[in-house]
């Protein structure tokens, strides 16, 4: 039975990674689009980013060196990822529920990473759990895991309540939305409860992590904790196939859409890619398009439907 749990946990991780990769590739492989940026763009120079200005504010901008303020982007992304700054600014009521949920997940992810690292290190240094460092690590991942689970469950419950009770949100809520939040509450709640119900003779979370890594069939997991881990693995596998994978989308919506202000004159690659796209043959049916499937976008763009289609 323990082996089944290990397989589910591994499968959950593999499906999650494969799903995320597939989704990222789907967006990355989509053709580059026409520019559609939104200001402020934080990689502008700080004095311009402050008021949301662009290089278009500079006379003969094409004769000046391009400016890319990476630090500006990092600052904005950091505040957005860690503290959901956009939500704080534009939807404060929701932030009080969404932030604990997301921050709780960050803590759980951090806990998992720490446990994984400790478990791997303990294979090399078996005495690690009994050393001072091992004891400190134990307290750290116990605290982050406990706090993470608590915040995640409270946040998800708060979001669920808002979805059901708020007359602005309820009409826009589908069965899937409710299921997603319930799934989080159930999986994290069960795992958390399972941990709280453990007795000293049960394996520790570090031993379980080592067991997952080494497929140690000798471990006997308490049933509630085992159920929580299975639910957690299923939830992990499910996420990439829902809108909840917005942590992947967000990279593209910010970097590839909102902040993509690169002019084509400064990139031979851009010009080459767009030359390829102009050779595509669209099939739009409206008569003014003149798209019969044989004409390229370049043919269409250089034709004039108001003058009999001549170029």
């Amino acid at each position: 039975m323990t082996i089944v749990l290990y397989v589910v946990v591994w499968a959950g991780a593999v499906v999650f990674l494969a799903g995320c990769l597939a989704r990222a590739l789907q967006y990355a492989r989509a053709p580059l689009h026409l520019r559609w940026e939104l200001y402020p763009v934080p990689h502008e120079s700080p004095e311009r980013a402050r008021h949301g200005g662009s290089y278009f504010e500079t006379t003969d901008w094409w004769t000046r060196p391009a400016h890319f303020n990476l630090l500006g982007e990092i600052k904005v992304m950091g505040a957005e990822i860690l503290f959901l700054k956009g939500l704080w600014e534009f939807n404060r009521r929701l932030w009080f529920r969404s932030f604990p949920f997301h921050f709780g997940l960050y803590l759980l992810i951090g806990t998992a990473a720490l446990l994984l690292a400790t478990a791997l290190a303990s294979f090399a240094v078996p005495a690690l759990p009994r050393t001072t460092a091992g004891v400190i690590l134990h307290y750290v991942y116990t605290a982050t895991g406990g706090l993470g689970a608590l915040l995640t469950v409270l946040g998800a419950a708060g979001l669920l309540h808002r979805r059901l009770a708020d007359e602005e949100l309820a009409p826009h809520t589908t069965g899937g939305d409710l299921f997603n939040l319930l799934f989080f509450i159930l999986a994290v709640g069960t795992a958390g409860a399972g941990y709280l119900l453990t007795v000293p003779s049960d394996p520790s979370v570090l031993e379980i992590t080592r067991g997952v890594l080494s497929f140690d069939a000798s471990l006997r997991l308490p049933p509630v904790l085992a159920a929580g881990l299975i639910l957690g693995a299923l939830l992990t596998a499910y996420i990439p196939f829902t809108h909840m994978s917005h942590f992947i989308a967000k990279y593209f919506t910010y970097h590839a859409v909102r902040w993509d202000d690169q002019p084509s004159r400064r990139s031979a690659t851009l010009r080459q890619r767009f030359a390829e796209y102009l050779a595509y043959r669209p099939t739009w049916s409206a008569s003014h398009m003149g798209a019969d499937g044989t004409k390229t976008w370049a043919d269409i763009a250089t034709s004039n439907p108001a003058q009999g289609g001549k170029k």
């Binding site: 789907q26 967006y27 989509a30 053709p31 580059l32 689009h33 026409l34 559609w36 989308a249 593209f252 919506t253 590839a256 859409v257 796209y277 595509y280 669209p282 099939t283 739009w284």
Partner: peptide, 11 residues
């Protein structure tokens, strides 16, 4: 047909 805005639309 819509390389022009496909990526942001999908997102």
């Amino acid at each position: 047909n819509n390389w022009t805005f496909l990526q942001p639309l999908l997102l």
